Simulated scan of single mutants.
Amino acid sequence: MQIASVHTRIVRAPYRRPFVISSGTSPELISLVVEVRTADGESGFGEASPMTAYTGETLAGLEAALTEHVAPALIGRDPRDLAGAHAAMDAAIRGQHLAKAALDIALHDVAARAAGWPVHLLLGGCVRPRVPTAWVVGLGTLEEMVAEAAAYAARGFVHIKVKGGEDPELDVRLVRSVREAVAESVELSLDANEGYDPGTAGRTVSRLADAGLDLIEQPLPRWDLAGMAMLRSRGGVRVMADESVYSLHDALEIVRRGAADVLNIKILKVGGLYRARQIAAVAEAAGLAVKIGTMPELGVATLAAAHLAAALPNATVAADLVGPLLVGEEPLAGAAFAGVGDVGWVDVPVGAGLGHDL
C-alpha cells in the first residue's frame, strides 16, 4: 500500500454564537480537510482548524505548509508506517504541527479502514466505549455563563468548563455561582488561557478553590513552569497545563518541574495522534492524568480525539468534544454527534476508520 496523492478542501461552519476566549473571538469554525488516497484506491481523511489567536497559525500558512512541504514528503510511503511518516514530515519542515496533525489523522483513518478496524484499535484498544465530554462555556456575562453551565449540567454533562482569565474577581464570582447552580458531582474547571498575573495568581487560585473549583487550566503564561509548580504545591485545586504542552519535550519538562497534575493533549497542537500517544505515555509514567482537548474542530478531528480518549487509561478528565455542537450545522460527521448535546457523551464508533461519513 502506497500513498498516491493528497487533496485538501477548506470548510467553514458559522458558530451558533461567536466563540470567545481571553485571547480572541472567532465568528466561524474554519477547517482544512485533507484526503489521503492510496494507489490501490483506499482513502482516509484528516482535519486541522487553525485558531490564530491561540496557536498563531493562519489558514493560508497551514495550507501552504501542508501542500508544499509536508504532503510531498509522504508520497510513495506506506500509510501504515506512522513512525516513518512523522520522521519524513519532521525532516521536510520544522514545526507546523497542525499540518502534520491533519495528515497524521488521515493516515490513521486510511490504515484503520484498510484493516477493517476502528481507529481506537490502532491506538491500543478501548478502555471506555462511551467518552464523557465536558461542556465548554465561552466568555459572556456572568448571568449568561451560569445559565448555560446549569442547563448543560442538567442534561447530563459530568464536567463543566468555563472560560476566564480576563478578570480574576469575576472568575471567583462565576465559579461560586456555577458551583451553586450545578450538582456537587459535576466537576468544574476554569480555563484562564494564560490570563493571570504571576504576582497575584496564587491568591486568585486559592479563592477559586474556596469557591468550589476542581481544576484550573493554564492560569499562567506557557513559559512560567515555576509559577505553575508553585500553584500546584499549594493544593486545593488541580492544575492542568494546556498552552505549555506543544511537544513530547514540553511534557517531559512539565513532569520534571512538577508543574501540573493534568496534561491537556490537543491532537492538532501536538502534531497528531502518534505524538499525542507519546505524550500520554510520559504522563502515565509520571502518574499524571490527561484530558483530550480540542481547539475546537469539526467532526473529523473531533472523532480522532474521541478514539484517543477511548484508548488511553489515564484519560480520566472529561474530553473536550463539543466543536461539532457549537456550529449551526456540522458538515463532516454530523451523524456521529447527533444527540451528544442532550446526553453529555460520545459513543465511540466501532466501524472501520474514524467513523465519519465522508
Rank of each mutant, 00 (worst) to 15 (best):
D104T: 12
D104W: 07
A304C: 06
S233A: 15
E143P: 09
L321E: 10
V237D: 10
H69V: 00
A73Y: 15
G355L: 02
E57R: 13
D109P: 10
A315V: 10
G84D: 06
L312S: 04
A226Q: 12
G44A: 10
Y196N: 00
A286M: 02
G293F: 02
L190A: 08
A319W: 02
G328E: 15
G293P: 10
A310I: 12
A352G: 12
P14Y: 01
L252P: 00
A201L: 02
D191S: 03
P324D: 02
R176N: 01
A102L: 04
P118I: 07
F337A: 06
A226S: 13
S185T: 15
E148R: 12
V6K: 08
R277Y: 01
Y152V: 02
V178W: 03
F337M: 06
L225M: 12
L225G: 04
L82G: 01
A53V: 03
L263H: 04
R238W: 05
D224A: 07
L139C: 05
V158A: 14
A306G: 12
E57N: 14
E194Q: 15
H120K: 06
V172Q: 01
K269G: 06
E329N: 02
M240S: 12
A106L: 05
G323P: 09
A147H: 09
L188Y: 09
R179M: 01
L174M: 09
T38K: 03
I21D: 01
E329H: 08
D242H: 10
R179I: 01
L308V: 10
G164P: 02
A319Q: 05
Q96N: 15
P198C: 04
T55A: 10
D214R: 09
G334I: 03
S31K: 06
A111G: 13
L82H: 14
D214N: 15
A301Y: 03
L208Q: 07
P221H: 10
D357Q: 12
H249T: 13
A335S: 13
E63V: 09
E217D: 11
R256M: 00
D167M: 03
S23R: 13
E217M: 06
I93Q: 11
G212P: 03
D90S: 12
R176Q: 12
A111I: 06
A183F: 00
R277C: 11
E243P: 11
P296S: 08
G328T: 14
R113N: 02
K163F: 05
S5T: 13
L122E: 08
R234A: 13
A285C: 12
R232E: 05
A309E: 09
K269E: 07
P313A: 02
P349C: 08
L59I: 14
A280H: 05
Q278Y: 00
K100V: 11
V33M: 08
V110E: 08
P129K: 11
G44D: 08
I30V: 15
V343S: 06
P324G: 09
A260E: 02
M1E: 04
A53L: 00
A13Y: 04
A88H: 09
I3Q: 06
H97E: 14
G84A: 02
A114S: 15
A147I: 04
H86T: 04
G344H: 09
R277I: 14
M230Y: 05
A285S: 15
G199Q: 12
E284L: 13
G339Q: 13
S185K: 14
V137P: 08
D342W: 07
G341R: 07
G355A: 08
V33N: 11
H86Q: 07
A309C: 09
I93H: 00
A85V: 11
R9G: 03
